[in-house]
């Protein structure tokens, strides 16, 4: 089972050779996604922060949570980190060093939105975040996060239809 998942991850990780996903405007909300059909939901930003700080590692049904991050220099990771964890990724270095000292590793990093969608859709317990317009039928939205400040409130889902979802 684990071997299959590992092979899947290796294949998915290779998707970044397709190139980084172009960033949309900072006003596009982020969708926190789980696999289609999953009953896992997030009760607000504090709960999501606990998952992305690895303080909460199990879903209520006992399934292990596998959080997925984008690379630290990806603008969408920067916005997500600021909105959910209250600080940019580099300011969490000391925090992750402390957890590493106790044998806890930070969330796995995948290189593209498509890689996140594919991994989340095929891995029980996985959770990731993607721009709202990138959500497709493989995943279910567990929570929507405004990451662009006041501009996000003006974002309309209709804007997604004007151009193809970014990959």
């Amino acid at each position: 089972m684990k071997l299959t998942r590992g092979v899947l991850l290796l294949a998915i990780a290779g998707l970044h050779v397709l190139g980084p996903t172009p960033a949309r405007g900072a006003d596009e909300p982020m969708a926190v996604v789980v696999a289609e059909g999953s009953r896992h939901r997030i009760e607000g930003r504090p709960a999501l922060a606990e998952i992305y700080r690895r303080k909460k590692q199990y879903w209520p049904d006992g399934q292990h949570i596998e959080p997925i991050n984008l690379p630290a220099d990806d603008p969408r990771r920067q916005r997500f980190s600021q909105a959910v964890l209250g600080m940019p990724p580099d300011q969490l270095d000391a925090y992750w060093n402390e957890l590493y000292f106790h044998g806890v590793l930070p969330p796995t990093v995948l290189q593209s939105i498509e890689a996140v969608l594919r991994f989340v859709s095929m891995t029980p317990g996985a959770i990731g975040y993607v721009p709202l317009c990138s959500v497709d039928s493989r995943v279910t939205i567990a929570l929507t996060i405004d990451t662009g400040g006041p501009a996000s409130e003006k974002f309309s889902p209709a804007a997604c239809k004007r151009e193809q979802p970014a990959r």
Partner: peptide, 20 residues
């Protein structure tokens, strides 16, 4: 058996301070 971290590490190479 492999884990998500190993798969990601295989993709990006070993990183100092992240263990192996």
């Amino acid at each position: 058996m492999l884990s998500a971290h190993q798969a990601a590490a295989d993709d990006t190479g070993y990183q100092l301070g992240h263990g192996w």
